[in-house]
């Protein structure tokens, strides 16, 4: 008996297309609402003024990049257990998106630093340096993938994604255990250091970035499945 996925494929529907569409619509709505909220509704910060508005997307993107790396770690564990190429696709795409979001975090953070501290980068700040280390570790993931042959690529990439995730808590907690730093800590164990009128728009921005990540992940996975199917067809045709 064919699987439900095969049935859907044979009936002309693309697996994951509906999910991609739904998440795409959710992301578009949330991004629109959050942009309006951040720029037109959220109150201006008394200390930093308009510059503080970078916070809403900068921190949201940072958190989603860490979620992406967590997804890659979980996908790596599932790949090692099941040996399914599907989990290799999920891990690869999650790290690709995590890296995109990480680059955005570094750039927007540098812009914010220039506006707030007068410098683009502070090498003595543990949060900035450990986050850069996380970015470089995940950038090396693609070097590993391209340097290993097909048979070992999935397994090595999964192990690297799991091991690489150890750097994420390092970045997350570095600023909390460091004695001196310039990077502010907004969220602590006792709650958020901001009024509710700002927190609500941060939560909406976070939801928007999370929905954008899921939508892009779904679209990428559809492409990966299509390319994999095409390779199978091309191989079968060569053998006929």
């Amino acid at each position: 008996m064919p699987s439900s996925t095969t049935e859907k494929t044979r009936s002309g529907r693309v697996p994951g297309a509906r999910a991609a569409l739904i998440w795409g619509v959710i992301a578009a709505v949330l991004v629109t609402v959050s942009t309006i909220g951040v720029f037109l509704v959220a109150p201006e910060d008394a200390d930093q003024g308009v510059i503080q508005r970078i916070f809403y997307f900068h921190v949201a993107i940072a958190l989603v990049s860490l979620v992406a790396f967590a997804v890659a770690c979980v996908a790596g564990i599932f790949l090692l257990r099941t040996r399914s190429a599907r989990w290799d696709d999920v891990g690869d795409v999650a790290i690709r998106l995590g890296l995109l979001f990480s680059v955005l975090v570094v750039i927007t953070g540098s812009i914010w630093a220039k506006a707030s501290w007068g410098t683009w980068w502070v090498w003595s700040d543990p949060r900035l340096v450990t986050y850069l280390i996380v970015v470089l570790i995940y950038a090396a993931y693609f070097v590993l993938r391209s340097s290993v042959d097909d048979d070992r690529r999935m397994r090595y990439a999964a192990i690297y994604a799991i091991a690489g995730f150890a750097s994420v808590p390092l970045s997350f907690y570095s600023v909390r255990v460091a004695n001196s730093f310039v990077h502010p800590v907004v969220f602590t164990g006792s709650g958020a250091a901001m009024p509710g009128s700002m927190l609500i728009w941060f939560v909406v921005s976070l939801a928007a970035m999370l929905a954008l990540f899921i939508a892009l992940l779904e679209v990428e996975l559809i492409g990966r499945r299509a390319e994999r199917a095409l390779r199978r067809v091309a191989l079968a045709l060569e053998n006929t």
């Binding site: 510059i51 508005r53 812009i111 220039k114």
Partner: peptide
């Protein structure tokens, strides 16, 4: 007031 930095970031 630094709005150019906000525009650049977005």
């Amino acid at each position: 007031g630094g709005s150019q930095y906000v525009v650049a970031a977005y």
